[in-house]
């Protein structure tokens, strides 16, 4: 049954692929190494504030699930993502919502084969604010500087990779690339802990992992 559906889908998709190939043939040669967005008809420019992609991820200290939108900067070599994350009460003792901004640079774009592209290195920073912690400072609870660090605000570096698949562009000509990424990260307080305890901690101790998907729209 499943095989029949696959065959039917392939048959249905075949004319689309053919037309895409024809369009490619007439499009100017792709010299930028960018994922294919070239089309016979250029899409209308988007307003600056319109997000270019949606993103969803798990881990990385910013949510069991974190979802948001982002913008490509500097010809998509950099991206700014804004996410809202969620951690259920059973995992943290209280329900947490985490607002995060991530700025990532991907200096290298490597086409692997048609439709597939690798960003072997993405490097960036994130800043997160957590709402909903249990023992958050109440007015007058502590004297000034009692705890020198912030409970809710974290900042940290990220390092990862990303692989992109170029889906067929939308009917209006927008790129609809879809990417999978992972990122290794840590945060300010973990870094401080390691920096002061090079014998007592290992770098692996302070690592976090994120796994995520990005989709252009």
């Amino acid at each position: 049954m499943i095989q029949r559906i696959v065959v039917a889908a392939a048959l249905a998709a075949a004319p689309l692929l053919t037309s895409a190939a024809q369009e490619l043939a007439t499009a100017p040669p792709d010299t930028t190494g960018q994922v294919r967005t070239a089309l016979a008809q250029q899409p209308a420019p988007l307003p600056w504030y319109r997000p270019r992609h949606a993103v969803v991820q798990t881990g990385g200290g910013i949510g069991m699930v974190a979802a948001g939108v982002g913008y490509g900067l500097w010809r998509d070599r950099a991206e700014l993502d804004v996410l809202v994350g969620y951690v259920p009460k059973k995992h943290a003792g209280s329900t947490l919502s985490i607002a995060t901004a991530k700025l990532m640079f991907s200096p290298y774009l490597i086409p692997i084969k048609e439709r597939w592209q690798l960003r072997p290195l993405t490097v960036g920073v994130y800043y997160s604010y957590t709402h909903g912690t249990i023992n958050d400072e109440e007015p007058g609870q502590y004297t000034k500087g009692y705890y020198w660090f912030s409970t809710d605000t974290r900042i940290g570096p990220l390092l990862g990779s990303r692989i992109t698949y170029a889906r067929d562009p939308s009917p209006r000509g927008r790129a609809r690339n879809i990417s999978f990424y992972y990122e290794l990260g840590t945060n300010d307080l973990y870094i401080l802990s390691y920096a002061q305890n090079r014998r007592g901690l290992s770098p692996v101790d302070i690592l976090t992992l994120s796994l995520g998907l990005k989709a252009d729209f």
Binding site: T58, G59, G60, G61, I62, G63, M64, G85, V87, H91, A92, G93, L96, I98, T130, T133, R154, L184, N187, L189, Y190, V204, L207, T208, L209, S210, L211
Partner: peptide, 15 residues
């Protein structure tokens, strides 16, 4: 094996 621990939901997550 340690992937689950690496996939930290929050520094306040105590799994």
């Amino acid at each position: 094996l340690s992937g689950c621990e690496l996939l930290e939901f929050s520094p306040n997550d105590h799994r």
